[in-house]
Computed example of a mutant assay.
Amino acid sequence: MRTLITGVDADGRSCVVSADELALDQLAPGFATGIPFATTASPPPARPDGAAPLIDQGIAPGLARWMIVELGPDSETPMHHTDTLDLETVLSGSVDLVLDDGAHRLEQGDLVVLAGVDHAWRAGPDGCRLSAVLIGTPPPA
């Protein structure tokens, strides 16, 4: 499983700050775990300022919502940012995560951490289904 973690560069543009394969640690026969991402504070840190329009998810800082998102074949969302830290898993299909640094193709099983940065989605030819856990963040300082 590939894990992409987003952030912003020195110019405040959304980008991938790390892209690594998730390593699983064998804890017992037939049982392994891996941690693609963890927070160190509650609520999570404030999201960065965004240039694209804000989609207010209505989730107070520290609260969580779990959603399933379906994107139809070849559909696209406009560039936007949210007031949440989003932990997303591609369940089926494929999708391009579009950031200021370009498009990043995600396939079934890939993971992405969206830290409230400017982004858009462009589904592949078969569409895409995502599992998304959204955690509310404070506004930028």
Rank of each mutant, 00 (worst) to 15 (best):
T77S: 11
P139G: 05
A41V: 15
A23K: 09
T89M: 13
L106I: 06
D83L: 04
E107Y: 14
D118W: 09
G7S: 10
A123W: 08
A51C: 08
L91C: 05
G136A: 10
I59V: 13
V133M: 14
V90T: 01
L130H: 00
L22D: 03
P29S: 08
A51M: 07
D83G: 05
A120N: 01
S18P: 00
L111A: 04
L22A: 12
P48A: 05
L27V: 14
L106H: 07
D101R: 04
P29E: 05
L134W: 07
R2Y: 05
A51I: 10
D83W: 11
V112T: 03
D110R: 06
A103Y: 13
I5H: 10
D25L: 13
A10S: 14
R13A: 14
G124N: 01
A141H: 15
V95D: 00
P61N: 07
V113Y: 10
G93I: 03
G7V: 13
P139C: 11
A115P: 00
P48G: 04
H119P: 00
V98I: 13
I35H: 08
H81R: 04
T39R: 10
G62Y: 09
A103M: 14
P44Y: 03
E88D: 09
M67C: 14
E70Y: 14
G102R: 05
T89N: 07
D56L: 12
P125H: 08
T89V: 15
P43S: 03
C15K: 02
D118M: 05
A115H: 09
D100N: 14
L22R: 00
S18Q: 08
A46Q: 02
P48T: 02
D74R: 12
D11P: 02
A115I: 05
G109N: 06
E21F: 13
T39K: 07
